[in-house]
Computed example of a mutant assay.
Amino acid sequence: MVERFETCLKKYFPRGPKIEFIVSISLVILTLIMFSVKKTVIISVDGRETKAVTFSHTYGKVLASNGIKIGPRDKVTPSLDKKVEDKGRLIVKRAVEVEVAVDGKKLNIKSAEDNVGDFLKKENIKTSRLDKVYPSRDHAVEKGMKIVVTRVQIKNMKESRPIEYETVLKNDSKIEDGTRKLLQEGQNGEKETTTRIIYEDGKEVSRKIISEIVKREPVQKVVAVGTLADSTPSRGGSLNYAQSIKMKATAYTADYQSTGKRPGDSGFGITASGTVAKRSSGNYSSIAVDPRVIPLGTKLYVEGYGYAIAEDTGGAIKGNRVDLFFNSGSEAVNWGVKWVDVYVIG
């Protein structure tokens, strides 16, 4: 360019000292101007860098002069109309095609955004904090990638539900066996249930009860069940009883083998109730029981033994078991061990 300017001056102006001076001065001025507008720029296109020397004023012209075309969705930094700076850096990011599935549609869009979040914002695809985005919003945008946006909604549904009442049966020894009597009518309660339902793209995916508030307590239904029965014991006669229990019956006497005590020892022949142990064919005999099953003082009828009263206890008498008192060891041995019906009289 300087040589052409020099040739032009020599062509139209005759040679001479003054002219030579003017030409020299002009060349210096032109050179200074050229150096003032000459700039070096680093151009990066998708990470590939080249160095360019340019006299252009804007980055758009720099790209044009270097044969670099920019697509409508390519991203250029700084902008194309920005003034060129010496040793500046011009970054071009080519748009790549991605597929987006959102709101029941599949869209093919070219983008040069850095990550999925920026891409959605640029394309005006709005998402809430509940919506699912795959890949994640900070994932880099890549060629051919598939982005899926799943709309998520949460709804809390309140409804009233009944609390079913319970039916309680109470034994009543004053009512005949097999007879029932309503003592209290039952009534359902009421509770308010809040259920959280989660929808994805309009379809329910989960349902969970998150709270229950009792608005009204239920009232129990109470029914009396008769246990008073009429029975004929093995010895004959009629017997009214409140309860019948199948029990294992053993036998004992006041001797040392049964009680560990001998005549003259403290408490010999005395029951846990403080009475003298007795066997009476015409009255109530003493028997040992588990007080947790049959309270002491309870009158009984023991099948094959007769009337008895729970007056004594024993270390081995646990649960559904009774120990029957006899006056002699031979009688106890003859009884042995039997399963019998024990009738609770009162």
Rank of each mutant, 00 (worst) to 15 (best):
V2C: 03
E3W: 10
F5V: 11
E6R: 11
E6I: 06
Y12K: 13
S24R: 12
T40P: 00
V41G: 02
I42T: 13
V45H: 01
D46H: 12
A64D: 09
G67S: 05
K69Q: 10
K69T: 03
P72R: 10
D74G: 13
V76T: 02
V76E: 02
T77K: 07
P78G: 05
S79V: 06
D86S: 14
D86G: 15
K87P: 00
L90T: 01
I91W: 00
V92K: 08
K93L: 01
R94F: 04
E97D: 04
K106T: 13
I109F: 00
D114N: 15
N124R: 15
K126F: 01
D131Y: 08
K132G: 10
Y134P: 01
P135E: 06
K143G: 09
G144F: 00
K146E: 12
R151Q: 02
V152S: 11
Q153N: 06
Q153H: 00
I154C: 07
I163A: 05
E164V: 07
Y165P: 06
T167H: 14
V168M: 14
S173F: 08
E176Q: 09
K181T: 05
L182P: 09
N188G: 10
R196C: 13
R196E: 15
R196Y: 08
Y199M: 14
V205R: 02
S206A: 14
I209H: 01
S211H: 01
I213H: 15
V214Y: 02
K215P: 00
R216V: 09
R216E: 11
Q220Y: 02
G226L: 04
D230S: 12
S231L: 12
T232N: 12
T232M: 13
R235Q: 14
S238Y: 06
N240V: 06
T250M: 08
K261V: 00
V276W: 10
V276P: 05
R279Q: 14
S280G: 10
S281F: 07
G282C: 10
G282L: 12
N283V: 00
S285G: 07
S286Q: 11
D290T: 01
G297W: 04
G297C: 02
G297E: 03
T298W: 07
K299Q: 13
L300F: 05
L300W: 10
Y301L: 13
A308P: 01
A310D: 03
G314F: 13
A316V: 01
A316G: 05
F325L: 09
S328K: 08
N334R: 08
W335D: 04
K338S: 02
Y343I: 06
V344R: 14
V344Y: 07
V344C: 11
I345R: 02
I345M: 08
